[in-house]
Simulated assay, not measured.
Amino acid sequence: MAEECKISAAMVSEERSYARSYVLKVDGYSRAKALLKNGEDVASTPFSVGGHDWAVRYYPYGNDDDSTDFISLYLEPKSADAEDVKAKFTFSVLDEDGEPVPSYSCTHPIHTFSSKGDNWGYPNFVKKADLEASVHIRDDCLTIRCDVTVIHGEETTVPLTDLHQHLGDLLNNKDAADLTFQVGGQSFSAHRCVLAARSSVFKAELLGTMEESYAASPIEIRDMEADVFKSLLHFIYTDTVPPVLDVVMAGHLLVAADRYNIGRLKMICEKKLCSHIDSGMVATSLALAEQHGFHALKKACLKYLASPSNLEAMMVSDGYEHLKSSCPSVFKDLVAGILPAELKAAKDIIMTMWK
C-alpha cells in the first residue's frame, strides 16, 4: 500500500518543541479509495512533537460502519514511552493558498493517550461527497494540516476562532438587522455596521455622504441575481465562499466583489476562473476580464488561446460572438500573441490598430 498511496508529513511551523504544525499530503486520493475499504487505513510518515513520535491514520471510507460516507482521521502516538501523554490537536483541510478551510477544520480538546497505538480523532471528519465536489482536491492530492500541542501539566485549551460562525448565525437569524435588500424578487436582511466594516463601497453608501439615499427600506440592488447576492452576503459575514463554487458562480461573484471592493473575494474568484479555463468558458472569461480589468484572468485566457487548437475551439463556442461584439479590442492581443516572435514589426502594427 505504501507504494500506491503515501501520506507525507512536513513541519511548517514550531511554537515550541511541544507545539508544532505539520502539513500532510495524501498523494493518490483516488488510488487510496480504490485500494481500501471501510475500516482500512493508511498511516502518515511519523513526525515528532513534544519528545514523542506521532502519525495520522487516514481512513478514506471511514473507520466503522457509521462513518462509511466520511473520511476519518486519527492522531496516534508511535513512541514506546507514550504513556499518559496529554495532547490537543487540530485537523484542517487546506485550500490552494495553504490556508485552513474553516468548514473543514476540527479541533480536539486535551486528550490523554494511554499508550503507544492509542489513537484518537474524528470518525466523521469530512463528508466525502462534499469534499470531492469542492476545489480542495488538486492533482489527486488532498492536503491536511495537523497542529499538535503536547501538554505538560495543566493548561487551558484555547479553541480556534469561531467568529465566522457567530457572524454567520447573526446573518441567518436576522437578529438586530437594520437593512433590507431587494434583489431579483427576493428580500435579504443585513446589518449596516457589518457591511460598512467589510466593504469600502458599502461604507460610503451606508455611512457616508450617500447615507440619506439609502435611508429608505428596502434597498433595491439591480443587475445582480439573488443567489449571487446571497453568496456575497455569506462571504461578507463569514469570509468563506460556498463549499461548492462552480465557475459560473465564481464569475458572477467576481463582478460583485469588484463592484463592492471586496479584495479577498476578488482574488478567490479570479483564481478559481484562472484554474478552470477551457474552450467552452474562455471567451466568456476573457470578455469578463477585459470589461472589468481583471488582469490575471486576462493573462491566463490569452496564454490558453496561444494554442491554435484552443483558439479554434473557442471560435465555435457560445461565448465567441459576445466576445466579438462586446470586446473587439481584445483581438489585437489575441493576434499579437499567436504571431511568431520574428514578426515583431507586424505585432507593433497590430498593437497600434485599436489605439
Results as ranks from 00 to 15, higher is better:
residue 80 A to W: 07
residue 354 W to D: 15
residue 83 E to G: 01
residue 155 E to Q: 11
residue 280 G to R: 12
residue 140 D to V: 05
residue 104 Y to G: 04
residue 45 T to I: 05
residue 294 F to M: 06
residue 298 K to D: 02
residue 47 F to S: 13
residue 301 C to D: 00
residue 111 H to E: 12
residue 83 E to V: 12
residue 319 G to S: 02
residue 284 T to H: 12
residue 138 R to D: 09
residue 184 G to S: 08
residue 81 D to W: 07
residue 182 Q to C: 12
residue 354 W to E: 14
residue 3 E to S: 11
residue 142 L to I: 10
residue 308 P to W: 04
residue 159 P to F: 01
residue 82 A to R: 01
residue 185 G to M: 03
residue 197 A to K: 05
residue 256 A to L: 06
residue 8 S to T: 13
residue 276 H to W: 10
residue 174 K to N: 13
residue 190 A to R: 10
residue 331 F to V: 08
residue 10 A to C: 02
residue 71 I to R: 04
residue 280 G to V: 05
residue 282 V to G: 03
residue 41 D to T: 11
residue 354 W to M: 15
residue 186 Q to P: 03
residue 297 L to W: 03
residue 246 D to R: 13
residue 162 D to N: 11
residue 329 S to V: 10
residue 136 H to F: 15
residue 334 L to P: 00
residue 41 D to P: 05
residue 338 I to K: 01
residue 76 E to Y: 00
residue 217 S to M: 07
residue 37 K to G: 14
residue 239 D to R: 08
residue 340 P to S: 11
residue 275 S to W: 00
residue 49 V to A: 10
residue 288 L to K: 03
residue 336 A to T: 12
residue 345 A to D: 15
residue 55 A to Q: 12
residue 45 T to N: 14
residue 47 F to Q: 01
residue 86 K to W: 02
residue 264 R to S: 09
residue 151 I to T: 03
residue 68 T to Q: 13
residue 126 V to A: 05
residue 312 E to N: 13
residue 266 K to W: 00
residue 329 S to H: 09
residue 64 D to P: 13
residue 228 V to I: 12
residue 251 G to S: 06
residue 102 P to F: 11
residue 198 R to P: 00
residue 244 V to L: 07
residue 351 M to Q: 09
residue 299 K to M: 08
residue 126 V to C: 07
residue 157 T to H: 13
residue 278 D to E: 15
residue 104 Y to W: 12
residue 301 C to P: 11
residue 243 P to H: 14
residue 28 G to P: 05
residue 338 I to P: 01
residue 234 H to C: 14
residue 91 F to Y: 14
residue 122 Y to Q: 04
residue 73 L to K: 00
residue 29 Y to W: 09
residue 4 E to Y: 12
residue 80 A to L: 08
residue 344 K to Q: 15
residue 271 K to N: 08
residue 10 A to R: 13
residue 159 P to S: 02
residue 41 D to M: 12
residue 108 H to G: 03
residue 119 N to R: 15
residue 230 K to M: 03
residue 299 K to T: 12
residue 87 A to Q: 03
residue 335 V to L: 15
residue 47 F to M: 10
residue 217 S to K: 14
residue 52 H to C: 06
residue 5 C to W: 02
residue 210 M to A: 06
residue 309 S to R: 10
residue 258 D to G: 07
residue 44 S to C: 11
residue 276 H to I: 00
residue 145 R to L: 09
residue 194 V to S: 00
residue 6 K to A: 15
residue 232 L to N: 10
residue 160 L to N: 14
residue 339 L to C: 08
residue 159 P to A: 08
residue 186 Q to K: 14
residue 8 S to D: 03
residue 107 T to L: 01
residue 5 C to T: 15
residue 94 L to H: 13
residue 150 V to Y: 06
residue 136 H to L: 11
residue 343 L to G: 10
residue 199 S to R: 04
residue 336 A to V: 06
residue 288 L to F: 01
residue 73 L to F: 00
residue 269 C to G: 02
residue 340 P to I: 01
residue 172 N to M: 05
residue 353 M to D: 15
residue 160 L to T: 06
residue 23 V to M: 03
residue 12 V to D: 04
residue 246 D to V: 00
residue 196 A to F: 09
residue 155 E to L: 04
residue 260 Y to C: 02
residue 69 D to Y: 10
residue 122 Y to G: 04
